[in-house]
Every structure is written in C-alpha cells, then in structure tokens.
Design a protein around this nucleic acid. Structure first.
Length: 961
RNA sequence: GCCGAGGUGGCGGAAUAGGCAGACGCGCGGGACUCAAAAUCCCGUGCCCCGGAAGGGGCGUGUGGGUUCGACUCCCACCCUCGGCACCA
C-alpha cells in the first residue's frame, strides 16, 4: 500500500496557532472550584533555549495537557526573570540597552516555546524588569523596612571582583561566585539586608509540611543549620563580659582558654598593651585572607594571645583569651570556649600553643592505656603485669600497656609499686593520671596539670622542653587515640556534676548554668541575613532616600516606582555612575537629598512573582489577595535543583512575611515541588581553541583547527561550553514531537542524563510506526463509529482489550503520581506494538481497532500533541483533543483477566501456568490447581512435598525433597 | 569529615508493602527489499556450558556475610560514583 509518509514539518505548523487561538491554555481565573496552579520556574532570558532546557518546559506542557483533559481549570503562566548581570554585561560590551537585549531574547524564547508546542496563558506574562512589576518589588522592600526586616548595616561582605558586585551568602558556592566562578573577596561595606534570620525557625519547621523531594528539604535544613546548645557568660579579669555559644555545655569544666574571632569588637578592650601590636598585625592578615583561604579545613590553625585572662565560671580557673581565625565572627556569638580534650580544632590549637588539656568526659571506649618510659620501672613489673593478664608491648625499653578500664586501679597500683623513685608513668583511660612512686596525680584541673608536669620534668630530662602534659603524652603515638574525643560520656573532673551520665550531661549542665546565673540554653543558626544590595544598573532601584538632616527616609508608596533612569550609556558602577539619578528632595523635610544607588538582588524579584500572575496588570496593589488566596499555594512547581536553596528559600521567606502582614492566608508558596535533572552532552576542550562544538569534532577527538588532542567531558549542556543541541535543528530534522517524546522518554525526569542522538532516532522511528498504524486503521475503519462489544471478543481481541485498560491505568497513574513519564512512554510503545500487530490481522474487529486507536491518540497527546491532533481530526473527530476527556479504564476487565502464575520448585521457576484471576486470588484454590497440573506433577515425581506457599495472584513456591 | 542520592546487559534504563530480573528504547547479529547503499520492515540478542537440532543445565542486580520457601528489594560490614555542606563551636 502506498501510504502517505509521516511528515512532521507539514503537520506541526498548522496546529501551533490552533491551540492558542482556541484559548485552551487560558485559566478561568474567577472559577477556583477545580483549580490547579501549575508553575514552571520562570527563566532568565539569555540567548536561546537548548534541548536541555526542554526537560523543564516539555515536562510541564505534558502535565498541563493531561490536567486539562482531566477537566482541571489549570493556571499555567510564564514570565521572565528579566533583571540581571548578563543583560548589563552585554550592554557594557556591545552598547545595547539591557532592555532591548532582554526583550530580544524574550522574543526568541517565545518563538521556541511555540515551536515546541509548549503553551502558556500568555495574557498573564510578566517581566520583572518592567516598571509595573518592579514598582511592587520596591513596595515589598518598603513593607520589609516598615517592619524592621530591611536594614542597612556595615560589615564584611562577599565581593566578586569579576562581576564587581556584592553577593549574598547563598550566592557564594565553595568560596566562588555562583555566576562567574571567580574567587570571592571580603570587603567592608555598608549594605542593605533582609532579616531572613528572624524566620529561621519557621523556615526550618515548616519544611515538614511540604511535599518536596527529601534531598531538597535536607539541603535547606542544612543551610539553615540549627544547633541547640547553651550560651555561657565568661568574665575577663578586667571586667568584660564575653558571651560564648557552645553545643557542648557539658564540657565547660574542660575549657582552658577562650578564642574570639579577630574581628570581634571586644578584641580592643581585651588586648593588653604589650600585645597590641602583635594583635593588630594578626587582625590585618586575617582580613586580607579570602573566605576560602581562611576556612579551608587543611589550613593550620593560627592565633594570637591577647595577654589577658578570663575566669572559667564553672571552676573559677584563670584561662587565657586568644583570637584565632578559625572562629567566625558571623556565627553564634563570635566567641568560643576552648575545650581541647573534646574538640578536635581546640585540641590542635592547644597542642600548637602549649595550652593545657584537661579531660572532662570519660572516653566511651572501655579501654585504657599506660606508658611507662624506659628506665622508669623495675623489671619485676613484667611478671606482675602478666599474672594480671595485661597486654604489654616493649618498645625501646618503654612499656606500652593496654587493658580494660575495670583493671585501671589494679594496673595503677602495680605500676606505682614497681616504679623507680625517679620514674614516672602515665595512664590514659577514663581520665589522665600521672603515676609517681610517692603519689598519683589526676589531671583534673590546671593546677594538677602544672604540678604533674613539673614533677615529670624534675625526674625526666627529656621532658623539659614540653609545655603541657598533652604534649608529653602526644609524643607517644600509642596513646594518641585516647587523648581526644568528641563523644558524649560520663562527666569527670566536673565538680558537682562529676559522674553525670553522658545521656543527661547536656541537660543537667544547662540546668546548673541557669541556676548559677552564668548561662542559659540557646539555639543558633548557620543562616545569615540576606544581603540584597547590588551596585548595578539593571535591577530594581532600592526605594530609599538619604537626607543629610533626616537620615534614611523611605520613598513614599505614592511615589513608586523609583524608575531606572533612561540613559544611553551604562557605566561600571551602575546607578552610581548616573549623576542625574542621585539628587532628589527629601520627602520628609523637603530639603536636598540623595537617592540610594543600589539595586536589589534579582532574587528579590523572583521571590514573589508567583503571586503576580494572578492579577498581572493590577495597578493598585502587588496582587489581588482574595484571588491569590484561592489559587495558591502553587499545586505543582517544577524547576532545576540548582535553586534548591537560593530561590526556594527566599520565596518561602517572603511568603511567610506577607502572611504575617495578613495579605496571604497560606505561609508556604509551593505545596509540591519537582526538580528535573540536567541534560548532559560531551564537551570538547582544545588547549589552543578552547571549547569546540561536538559537531565539528567527529570523527575522532582531535581539534578540527589545530589537530590537538581534545579533552572530553560529559557535562550539562551550556552555551559557554558549546555543547548544546539546538531544538531548531532537531525540529527541522525530526519535528517537535520527536524531540518532545525523546525528552520525556530518555530517563526518569528527576535524574541527570546524557542526550543521545540514537535515542532521538528511536523515537522518530516509533512515531513513524504509530503514524503508519494509525493511517492503516483509519483507512480500514472509515465508516465505523460504534463502540466495541466485549461480549463478541475472541482471545486476541480480549488480550488487546485488557492491554488497553492496563495502559490507560499506567499512564494515568504516572501523571498523577511520581511523574516517571519515561515508563508511561514505554507502556504506550508496548500498546502501539500490540495494536500494530493486531491491525495486520485481516479479521480484526474494526470497532475495537478504531476504539483502541482513539484511546491511544488521546493517551499519547500530552507527549506528542501535533501528530495526535492531526490523526485525531483524520479520525473524523470534531472537537479538539484538549476538549476531549482523558480515557478511563474499566478495573473489572483487569480484575477478570487471566494471570500467569510462575511455579517455583525449590526456589527455581520451573513451570508457568495461566489461571483466571478469581481462582488465582484464593491461595487454597490456587494451591490445589497448581498441584493438580500435569506439568507440575511431572516435575515433582519422586519428590516429597514439604511445603507449599501460594501467594495470591503472584506465584506458587513448592519445597520438595 | 558530615549529610543525602545511587551502583542492574555493550549503552539509557524497567521491576522495591520480599514473589517470573533485564519492560521499553538504543546498539549489535542475521534476514527481506535494493544493482548497491541509506531508509524501512521481520527475526534474534544477559553471561557461560552441553546438544546437530528440539531442548537442557549453571551463573547472574558493586563486594562479603545474614534473615527467608523465596532478596535488585530487608539487616550487618565494606568498596566505589555523584550531589550538597564543610574550622558552624
């Protein structure tokens, strides 16, 4: 038969405007009876879309088409996160206005969406760079300011030298700029912040009620970083109060020094005159270090003694005060107590600077060790230890002992008994004990530590240079693993609290601190306030006026928006480079004043856009609260994981703030979140010509220009690495449906996956088969309009009928559940294959053929809408696909279908039998049927049946010997 | 280092309230069509062994143990990969 070939270019174009002109994607905004707010993260319009971007939009479009056919009133808007650096950089480099550059890209994006068949409710389009939008971003700022949640502060901020702009903490990834990967520096600047920390607890707690991927919630949880502990008040000898945060108040008795951050304001008052110069020098060095250099864990700890002392409030001991760069000013109170016996960093610091180590938590391991230096003991000790069953190792004359803690007293007594007068020995176990012939010194306080050290030095020349007992013990590698630990355990050397069990240690210490009035329980977060000032042009101007008389004055709401000045040329300093923008009059006193020249972080723009879609053109207010409260929270939000912290945390914060203002009745913006994975593709790097497009490389892996061997890496598609696959080319070659189908079929949508040319061809072949099968069926069943009659089915018809029900079930469930659409596509391919072979039978039932095809077209239409719409109309349907209800299935057909039951004999599948489902559902009946089956009887010949396990509808397992 | 996800054919991946491992697709092999190739269509395809064939047997989900009639799935220990955080007191 000479059939019309599948020609996507011819059919696709005709449907592109059909859906739009019919208004299928327009939400009925006032009818929220059966509403569904589906939202894709809006893009930053830069350049062109590539096949990797399709992962997000094609998935969304398929879901929305499904929902529409299911009868939902879907709100599915799209807009533009249109402020940002690339536009401004393009402006600086090419002299184009950022707005023109941005809108040029937006037009391109919209053209590509249309080509893909990805449709939105374009009446609701928004762009954050337009005054009618950023007016309300500024309004949001004013509201935050009014509530004391927007404030200006001087401080060390992250500065990207390449972008010449400050960055929020969330925008520094591993010490580098999130956009350009430059090393971030620290600068002291006065900047605007949003007080997101005021919402830390709620942002953490409410994660629980979100239907989000667990790993995203975990990331936010870690980012917020809640720590429970206590604040303890130390007092310096010159009367300064030093507040310290610790998660381990139970180790307070072991605090032998204090360390405060070099930038801590108390440093001035705590430095002794003699140390002033050294301290100043150290502070300057620290200041110059980048965040990465300073916080690299490998970096050796450094610090400087301030020359003054504080008192440990638990035991009254004098402890030195240090500054060190491992203590961060921005976390906790910027000061820590040094407990070297139970904190690794403190231990290394103490060892380096000769600060005493006092163990105050018993070692959780039930072993103890002892060191008896060479010449310190009489040799009768050896048999004595052996009778006690103590493990002894002799090393260069010294004895190294290992024993369980219960034997500690026995061992101690034995050692003491056999020690020479000038000898000494050390036992480390539950605590540290130094043994001499005349006494045993427990290292439980600084005084004891000093005394023990002095006594050792008196006896042992070699130990004279040592500064602490810890140093003496550390010298013997055998003892090291017991010298420091950070576990919970019984408190020792802790005065009134000694003996407290590890499980109660923290609570009891906090209680004790509160009773003594020197501390209280406290919670700290890693989350810092959100720095939102940007020294740029292409952003929403901060609506603030600086008046020499009135100080900081907010721009009155009626004067919003503060418009971006229209200028020809944009300078490197952003708004600060535009002299005519700055002067204004003070709204309070009417005098001469100056505008704030910072713009807001673009993440402020995107922290509320999902609200604006509801009433995008409202000139009176940012959003229509009444409608917003009916439509939100967003039912399903889809976007990339890269926003797991940044955008998603900021949006949650702003939503909670607007909730507190009484403008919203919900306090979480996104009920369900789905994060799609990136699409990767090989990228080729030439040492001479940088990134080479894959197309120019093949065959081989050499540079087409210089022949150099290329470095290949499979990485996310990106324009900068030139490894993008162009949708325009794919559509020209295979059509949009093929690209859509492959995008949804290539793997689970949440996983990162490599784009495959061969995979695309597979989908192209499938659509050809589908097309041919459909045309065959349409030709054969032209006149027939009746529904199939199951009563008339033969076995082949029945099998196809059952398969159809199963396919409808599978596809529907994937859309409504886990969104593993790759498996839905697989099911549709299976069904197409079966339908296609059934259609070859000249005796095939035309009613069934037609019905099966009709359903297949509907099921496939969210994936490949063009070919389906075309075939749908060729089938003679009057309405559009999107006006037709989604197919349903009859569960009874599936229930009544025959099932195949595998029969295991001694763990191996030996026979497979088919039974009606009703029979297989009853374990007793199933067992009887199986044992009666001749194939099974034959297998069991000569064997004695020991056990039969019949699992209804699944399998039968027979154990026989 | 800590937290999280994950290791299944030549490849992308199916199958987890414990029940036929490898759906679907790619690739590969064979065949048809063609002067030929491409495209398309049909058949086969986890690995190994016995057999001329029909057929039969063994091994297989990162490694080693365990629970069970039965383990990709549960438990213990370990190895590797990816992602996030990382001197956070």
């Amino acid at each position: 038969m000479n059939r019309e070939p599948y020609n996507p270019q011819a059919i696709e174009e005709k449907w592109r405007d059909f859906w739009r002109s019919r208004g299928f994607f327009k939400a009925k905004i006032n009818d929220t009876h059966k509403k569904f707010y589906y939202l894709n993260m809006f893009p930053y319009p830069s350049g062109k879309l590539h096949a990797g971007h399709g992962r997000n939009y094609i998935l969304g479009d398929a879901i929305v088409r499904f929902l529409l056919m299911r009868g939902w009133n879907v709100l599915n808007p799209m807009g533009w996160d249109a402020f940002g650096l690339p536009a401004e950089n393009a402006a600086l480099e090419q002299g184009v206005h950022p707005r023109d550059w941005t809108w040029q890209n937006i037009r391109e994006f919209k053209r590509q969406f249309r080509a893909w068949g990805v449709e939105y409710d374009w009446d609701r389009e928004i762009a954050t760079c337009e005054p009618d939008y950023y007016k309300w971003t500024q309004w949001l700022f004013l509201k935050l300011y009014e509530k004391g949640l927007a404030y200006r502060a001087k401080g060390k901020v992250n500065w990207c030298p390449h972008c010449e702009v400050v960055l929020a903490n969330e925008q520094v990834i591993g010490g580098r700029c999130w956009r350009c990967n430059s090393l971030v520096e620290k600068r002291e600047l006065e900047q605007w912040y949003f007080k997101i920390t005021a919402y830390a607890e709620r942002l953490l707690r409410d994660l629980e009620k979100l239907d989000w991927p667990e790993h995203v919630k975990k990331m936010q949880e870690n980012w917020i970083g809640r720590s429970e502990g206590a604040e303890v008040l130390f007092r310096s000898e010159n009367g300064q109060e030093i507040k310290v945060f610790t998660t381990r108040p139970d180790t307070l008795w072991g605090a032998t020094f204090l360390v405060i951050a070099p930038e801590h304001p108390l440093v001035e008052r705590l430095t002794s005159p003699a140390k002033r110069q050294e301290v100043q020098a150290y502070r300057e060095i620290t200041e110059r270090l980048s965040e990465v250099e300073r916080t690299s864990a490998e970096k050796e700890k450094t610090g400087v003694f301030l020359g003054t002392y504080a008192i440990n409030p638990a035991n009254g001991e004098r402890i030195p005060i240090w500054i060190a760069d491992y203590v961060l000013f921005g976390y906790g109170t910027g000061a820590v107590m040094g407990v070297p016996a139970h904190d690794e960093r403190d231990f290394l610091f103490a060892l380096k600077y000769g600060l005493p180590v006092i163990p105050v938590i018993a070692h959780p391991a039930a072993v103890a060790k002892a060191l008896i230096p060479a010449g310190a003991y009489r040799k009768e000790i050896l048999p004595a230890l052996q009778t006690q069953g103590i493990e002894v190792e002799e090393k260069e004359g010294a004895l190294l002992l290992r024993f369980s803690v219960e034997k500690q007293q026995t061992v101690e007594a034995l050692i003491q008994q056999h020690l020479r007068p000038e000898g000494w020995a050390a036992i480390v176990g539950q605590g540290w004990r130094i043994v001499f012939q005349e006494e045993v010194v427990n290292v439980g306080s600084q005084a004891e530590e000093r005394r023990a050290l002095a006594m050792i030095k008196e006896r042992d020349q070699a130990q004279r240079p040592k500064k602490t007992i810890a140093e003496v013990l550390w010298a013997e590698a055998f003892l090291r693993d017991l010298l420091f630990h950070a576990d919970y355990g019984t408190m020792i050397n802790c005065g009134p609290l000694s003996g407290t069990a590890g499980s109660a240690a923290v609570a009891r210490t906090v209680e004790w601190l509160e009773r003594q009035g020197i501390g209280k329980s406290a919670v700290t977060y890693k989350l810092r306030d959100w720095l939102i000032s940007r020294q740029r042009y292409w952003g929403a101007p901060i609506p603030i006026i600086h008046c020499p008389r009135c100080g900081i004055v907010p721009v009155p709401e009626k004067d919003l928006p503060v418009r971006l000045p229209e200028v020809r040329r944009i300078g490197k300093l952003g708004l600060a480079d535009i002299p005519e923008f700055i002067p204004t009059t003070c709204p309070r006193c009417g005098g001469v004043a100056q505008r704030d020249t910072d713009t807001m972080d673009t993440f402020v723009d995107s922290s509320w856009y999902f609200l604006r879609y509801i009433s995008p053109k409202d000139e009176e207010r940012p959003f229509d609260s009444d409608l917003v409260n009916r439509w939100l929270p967003v039912d399903l939000y889809v976007g990339g994981v890269e926003h797991a912290i940044l955008h998603l945390l900021y949006s949650r914060f702003i939503t909670k703030f607007l909730f507190d203002l009484g403008l919203l009745t919900f306090d979480e913006p996104f009920k369900k979140l789905f994060t799609q994975g990136m699409v990767t593709y090989p990228a080729y790097w030439c040492p001479n010509h940088h990134w080479i497009p894959p197309k120019e490389v093949s065959p081989g892996t050499r540079c087409p220009r210089c022949g150099a061997e290329l470095v290949v890496s499979v990485v996310a598609m990106s324009k900068s690495k030139k490894n993008v696959v162009s949708p325009d080319e794919l559509i020209a070659q295979y059509g949009a449906d093929t690209e859509r189908l492959y995008t949804l079929f290539m793997g689970p949508p949440e996983k990162e996956i490599e784009w495959s040319e061969e995979g695309v061809r597979g989908c192209w072949r499938f659509l050809n088969r589908f097309w041919n099968t459909a045309l065959t069926i349409i030709a054969r069943t032209g006149e027939c309009q009746e529904q199939p009659v199951p009563e008339s089915f033969g076995p082949k018809e029945q099998a196809l009928w059952v398969k159809l029900q199963a396919t409808v079930k599978k596809v529907t469930e994937e859309f409504e559940g886990r969104l593993a659409l790759n498996t839905a596509v697989a099911a549709l391919m299976e069904f197409t294959n079966e339908l296609s072979s059934y259609a070859e039978d000249p005796a095939a039932d035309p009613k069934l053929l037609r019905w099966a095809l009709r359903n297949l077209i509907l099921l496939l239409s969210p994936f490949t809408p063009f070919i389906c719409e075309e075939l749908w109309h060729r089938l003679g349907e009057e309405k559009a696909v999107l006006e037709t209800p989604w197919p349903t299935y009859d569960p009874r057909v599936l229930e009544e279908a025959e099932v195949e039951i595998p029969i295991q004999i001694n763990g191996k599948v030996r026979v497979k039998l088919r039974f009606p489902r009703a029979k297989a559902a009853d374990p007793k009946a199933l067992e009887a049927l199986v044992l009666a089956a001749p194939e099974v009887k034959q297998r069991l010949q000569g064997l004695r049946i020991e056990k039969v396990i019949a699992v209804p509808e699944k399998l039968v397992s027979i154990v026989a010997r």
